[in-house]
Design a protein around this nucleic acid. Structure first.
Length: 146
DNA sequence: TTTCTGACA
DNA sequence: TGTCAGAA
């Protein structure tokens, strides 16, 4: 049996494991904080046995990173965790939408174009996301030929 | 050397 | 939360 991969056709990110030292370097969150957050039930390390070294999944690493970002923005730990959880719920939705809707991306020196495909079943208009001068916008173009 | 737990000028 | 101790 082929191994299942939640990220089809790419490396299985769930198998990327990080030690507490690595998490500290990557996220900037101290080991003291990580142990405290775990003690409070805000985060979980893989198989946390008695005095064994903690290991974190990449998903948890991202979660920790998001929490620290919200803390920096002035949120309390509890609020930061709640917002990080909200983000965790939103990301899969965004990923699913983009995966099915994204038709292609092109870019040149001054602008990037994201092709989101047809506006609707009539196939008369096409939707694009535009990035230019650091600003983003949508653009809808009439489609003449198929 | 790194991480763990517990404690607190 | 930082930091130090004593152990693994």
């Amino acid at each position: 049996m082929a191994e299942e991969n939640n990220n089809d056709a790419f490396i299985d990110t769930d198998k990327l494991i990080f030690g507490i030292g690595q998490v500290q370097q990557i996220t900037g969150v101290s080991g003291r904080q990580l142990r405290y957050w775990e003690e409070q039930g805000y985060i979980h390390s893989l198989s946390q046995k008695k005095g064994a070294a903690r290991e974190y999944s990449m998903h948890t690493l991202f979660f920790i990173f998001h929490v620290s970002r919200f803390l920096e923005q002035g949120f309390t730990l509890q609020a930061a965790v709640d917002k990080a959880k909200q983000l965790d719920q939103q990301l899969p939705v965004l990923r699913q939408f983009l995966k099915s809707q994204l038709q292609g991306v092109s870019s040149d020196a001054d602008k990037s174009l994201i092709d989101f495909g047809y506006l609707d079943e009539s196939h008369t208009k096409r939707v694009y996301g535009v990035i230019e001068d650091g600003k983003t916008a949508f653009k809808i173009e009439e489609v003449h030929d198929e």
